[in-house]
Write a protein that binds this DNA or RNA. Sequence first.
DNA 1: GGCGGCGATACCTCCCCGGTATCGATTGCC
DNA 2: GGCAATCGATACCGGGGAGGTATCGCCGCC
Lengths: 279, 279
Amino acid sequence: METRELRYFVAVAEELHFGRAAQRLGIAQPPLSRAIQQLERRLGVALLERTSRTVTLTEAGSVLLREGRAALDAVDAADRRTRRAATGRPGLVLVTKAGASGDLLRKLLDAYAAEPGAVTVDVLLCGPAEQEPLLRDGRADVALLHRPFDSTTGFDTEELCTEGQVALLPAGHPLTTRAHLQMADVTALPGLPMPRWPAPDGTYPDGPGPRVRDSAQLFQLIALGRASAVLPESCRTHLRGDLVAVPVLDAPTVTTVIAWPPHSRSRAVAGLVRAATRL
Amino acid sequence: METRELRYFVAVAEELHFGRAAQRLGIAQPPLSRAIQQLERRLGVALLERTSRTVTLTEAGSVLLREGRAALDAVDAADRRTRRAATGRPGLVLVTKAGASGDLLRKLLDAYAAEPGAVTVDVLLCGPAEQEPLLRDGRADVALLHRPFDSTTGFDTEELCTEGQVALLPAGHPLTTRAHLQMADVTALPGLPMPRWPAPDGTYPDGPGPRVRDSAQLFQLIALGRASAVLPESCRTHLRGDLVAVPVLDAPTVTTVIAWPPHSRSRAVAGLVRAATRL
DNA sequence: GGCGGCGATACCTCCCCGGTATCGATTGCC
DNA sequence: GGCAATCGATACCGGGGAGGTATCGCCGCC
């Protein structure tokens, strides 16, 4: 199976439309049809059910979609990491959610930088659920992930710290006088819905809350009295004056972990992880 | 990057010889040379240093060897799992070291078989260090691994049980009268060296011990007074009469884990894991 | 029933993969 | 020191296959 065929199949499987998939791939539709047929013939497996009106995935097709994406990520990672290795400038890319674990990150970078043989660490900030693909396809070397929100499946990890969560409310809100809250108090606040974060593909789930892309937007919306949120308590360290954090006792505990792709034999990653576990 | 190019590069990187690599790939040498040149040109990276007498890997080349192998495994896994999904016979392949965790495996299979919706589980027995590649390239769905001997890096795992280790000695050996031993007692037994197991590529490490391929060979050699071994204590359950097991107090504890590839959304794998954790 | 949308087919072109023959460089040997 | 052997690179050729355009066949819809 060639990566070209995999790319073609993934495109069709995602679009469920040969014409659009071909457009996305920058080729004409007929070669795409033929490539998929050939892939099915070589595998001896029907991947798609076509009526002349609609395309759907077979059972085997959805398996290949899932596995094929993983395989393409692995190929992309090989490409990127090889290119990076050739630049001669050894450097790490660490990715974390913007606005999370600020203190921890600073301490980690300081501790690592003090080590002998430390390389430069580029910090990449991104939205939630964007870290996983970055780590998987080689655009990043290490990530700070937050369980249970992020899935650490397929990565090697070390736990760094755990913390409770707090509700963020606009200053002056009645609940801000309370010493602590329960989840039930905040999930159904009238007029303060939970915001919606984008999925990895950039789309937003359905729901009542406002759409947010980063923590600055979120804080702004909370300050305006248009939303509320439950976040790890470390977010208090850079809290604006117009927001109040109240502990939520029964919210799930958040564990910050440092994660890196397996078979990462890189000296630099190992050093960074060692620095992290010693914090 | 196409998988063909990756396969070619991995072959050359492993052989460090264009002629032999070409032979292994079943093509002539000139197309192979060209393919590698083209790969280097497209990546913009030197992967190999050729003198007209010898071929060596560059830094970037060894990165691509590691990452490329992982990528090829992922592609192979996609192929195999798609084919398997298409057969319609949902079945699982569980791989474990021959002779290890016999009781646990039996209990696991019984417990899972009793579940509603259980599928057939094919058991694949193999030598040590062979499980990882099987799981990685899709020939197996689940494995029973034994830490710290097997690396679980890159897999999702659940711990099943932990146990101490025992020294296996021929009946009548002086040490068999002892109630327990230390590692130091057994590592340097005169005339009873530790046997050597094959690496994943089938070669044996250097050393004094006899070469063994499976536990039957091992037991035979120990009974003959030609070797000794330190094994998890569960091996006692199917011990021959001419062997004696003595606990080794300071040997590392062995943890049996059930491991499966990440993104395995399969219902069957999930069911088997659930059955395993409930044991 | 005609129209429009969609995937499949037919057919053509050209690139690139693989093969053979050969070169050029390095090494080891007498 | 020169000659042969070894090994990777180069030159050149032929065929298969990838991609393009034109068109067909099928189906849903006004």
